[in-house]
Amino acid sequence: MSENSGTPLPAISGPAERALAAIGVTTLEQASEHSEKELLALHGFGPKGIKILRESFATHGLAFRED
């Protein structure tokens, strides 16, 4: 089920993980293709998810897409 073509997502809440999966996001690299605003608009994804992704992005040299 996991893809080897990217960095796995960090541990986030179940609803946030399902929200990302619903738009096809399963890796950090895929998450970085979206803006904070886009992700916050997803049902089940909130500010805590943004914080967790932001911290993980910093570790891997990634960032959210700019609006």
Rank of each mutant, 00 (worst) to 15 (best):
E55N: 14
I50N: 05
P10M: 12
P8V: 06
L53C: 10
L40H: 10
T26Y: 03
G44I: 06
A16T: 04
A22G: 13
N4K: 12
L40S: 11
E66Y: 13
L39A: 14
P8H: 00
F64R: 12
F45I: 09
L42I: 12
A31F: 12
T26N: 02
P10W: 13
V25G: 09
E66P: 05
F64V: 08
A16S: 14
V25P: 10
L20Q: 04
I52R: 04
T59S: 10
I50R: 05
G14N: 08
S5G: 05
E17M: 10
T59D: 13
G49S: 09
G61W: 10
P15H: 10
S2A: 01
A21E: 13
M1R: 09
E36R: 15
L40C: 07
N4W: 09
E33I: 01
K37A: 14
A22C: 03
L20E: 05
F45M: 09
L39Y: 12
G44T: 07
K51D: 14
A63V: 04
D67V: 08
S32W: 06
F57L: 01
P47H: 14
L53F: 08
L28C: 06
G61P: 10
G44L: 04
Q30C: 03
P10V: 13
A16C: 03
L28N: 05
A11G: 07
G61M: 05
E36Q: 15
P47Y: 11
H43F: 06
L39H: 14
T27W: 00
E29A: 11
P10Y: 13
K51P: 00
E36F: 00
L39S: 13
